[in-house]
Design a binder for these strands. Structure first.
Lengths: 210, 210
DNA sequence: CCTAAATCTTACCGGTCAGTATAGTTACGG
DNA sequence: CCGTAACTATACTGACCGGTAAGATTTAGG
């Protein structure tokens, strides 16, 4: 019972070696789960991808479900990092709002148009209370909150409305890009977003920026 | 070799009995594949759901993959029927454009928020050339064409642009409704669509309708 | 250098899956 | 009413899956 370290997600008392192994496992899980689908990918393949045995995998994660949840958590963390990196390049909140589309396009393209990992997870796991589904929900909620905050900063009269519209546009563009194999739709959705953001700013009496 | 009827999708020389069995199989496949996911649903469960044996299933469909493709084809056909039923209630093309959102909301709710079957299929089958993926692509392309036609009829200056924007809104609302368990997003997306359609009509000098 | 943690090796379990074989039975249509 | 198409019953194959067992071995770190 003392060695039940498999379940915690934070770096408790793990050695550097174990830490590195865990990293390789999560990296392998990320690549394989995303590219091939979760149910279609066996744990053995992930262990092999990490250069490790199935036994070692199970000493880091107590079950496949838990590994899946961590896989999505990692995706979420990396996404937030990439997003904030993008946003930091801009000062004005309305520019930041549009920069979210740039971050999306980058993600869409880098994933070879396999779609949103969180949406795909929802497709594979109908159970809304599956640990991975909780992570997925929180991921989307986080983006929504970010958009709402930026919308408020941009002075939109109804920040929640603008945020949801941008959110829906982002989601629609992402899923469309994956379905049709066309990443250009993200940029075209962005053009509509520009109108929405401008209109929201104009409604407040601010000058729109070209 | 003469009995190789399993592969054709049209009602060739099937008896009424076989026809009815095929119907029950497709109905069972629809319910189970959609609710539980395709990979997670075994062919045995579908046969049982149709009240027949696995052997009978395989006398109607040559493989699970083929059954999956037919499952999506059926979905597409039923969707088109439901959509045209909705559209027929309206005369003006701009009203028809918005009625698509009503049809979507109805579909979203009726499916208990399990999302778009075609998107879910894309999530489960990475191979773009999988027969089911082809059906999914054609399904989306069909809707796009319909939207583009209606946009042109509505007199939009750039029908393709309007159509794609509405399409992306529809897709985004659908996936969001499924992810967050909130069907209201479809109606809220519709509100933005109303603005887009009005703007397109206004640009042509037509009076907008309340 | 020695110890304790981390990993490896190998083999196994019970279960599920897609798909097939064979032989027997039912129901429908001419 | 009979022939044939449709379906049943049952058992099987071969593969893969998630997860576990037990003991040997390696590695890092004090």
């Amino acid at each position: 019972m003392t060695g039940a370290r498999a379940t915690d997600g934070d770096p408790g008392g793990r050695s550097k070696r174990a830490e590195a192994t865990r990293r390789r496992l999560l990296d392998a899980a990320d690549g394989l789960f995303y590219a091939g689908g979760i149910r279609a990918t066996g744990v053995e393949a992930i262990a092999e991808g990490a250069g490790v045995t199935k036994m070692t995998l199970y000493s880091h994660f107590s079950s496949k479900d838990e590994l899946v949840a961590h896989y999505l958590s990692e995706r979420d963390a990396r996404w937030r990092e990439a997003l904030e990196g993008r946003l930091a390049k801009h000062e004005a909140p309305d520019e930041k709002l549009l920069a979210v589309f740039d971050a999306y396009r980058e993600y869409v393209v880098s994933g070879e148009l396999r779609g949103c990992a969180f949406v795909n997870c929802a497709a594979e796991f109908p159970d809304r209370e599956h640990p991975a589904r909780r992570v997925a929900r929180e991921h989307k909620a986080g983006l929504r909150r970010r958009l709402a905050g930026l919308s408020a900063e941009a002075g939109a009269e109804e920040p929640e409305v603008l945020a949801e519209r941008l959110f829906v546009l982002l989601e629609g563009a992402y899923v469309t890009a994956a379905m049709e194999g066309d990443e250009g739709v993200v940029d075209r959705a962005r053009r509509l977003a520009e109108d929405l953001v401008s209109a929201a700013a104009v409604a407040r009496g601010e000058p729109s920026r070209g």
